[in-house]
């Protein structure tokens, strides 16, 4: 993975975090945060748009239209197709942010036109408050907590 210097600014009203990897269009939305993994096949009820894996920290919560802020991509290769299928029905997160991504989720974001950031020098799930409004700017590879 490419290495770029991490950049964090903590002002009085805005925190900004710089990622090493980014794709997609800019979005703003409510953050759904957990130090847990993500796999479209293993973790989700994709029809209803909720986390259903019993051991997942977000079990029972809806991911639709949210900015998911999670630790790492998990699971199998199916997520690459599944993000595209979820996007076709509008039952999809607005963006996904990972501490560590795997190729499948990146490929899925590219195929499904989903905004994604990954690769931070600090644990992004500990920095972004659950429920905060966040702004994702892939062109600048930044996440801002508004």
């Amino acid at each position: 993975m490419s290495e770029l210097p991490d950049h964090t600014m903590q002002g009085s009203t805005v925190m900004e975090f710089k990622a090493r990897h980014a794709i997609g269009l800019p979005v703003t939305g409510e953050a759904l945060v957990a130090h847990d993994g993500f796999s479209a096949r293993y973790d989700l009820d994709r029809i209803n748009g909720t986390f259903t894996r019993p051991a997942h920290k977000l079990v029972g919560q809806s991911y639709v239209g949210k900015v998911l802020v999670l630790d790492t991509a998990k699971g199998g290769v199916a997520s690459a197709w599944m993000l595209h299928e979820m996007a076709s029905r509008g039952i999809v997160p607005k963006a996904i942010v990972f501490n560590t991504v795997n190729p499948i989720l990146a490929q899925g974001a590219a195929f499904g036109d989903i905004t994604m950031l990954a690769g931070f020098d600090q644990d992004i799930t500990a920095k972004v408050p659950h429920g905060a409004t966040v702004e994702i700017d892939p062109a600048n590879r930044t996440l801002r907590v508004l």
Partner: peptide, 8 residues
Amino acid sequence: SNFEGGPS
């Protein structure tokens, strides 16, 4: 090889 999802 990397993990290559179906489209890739």
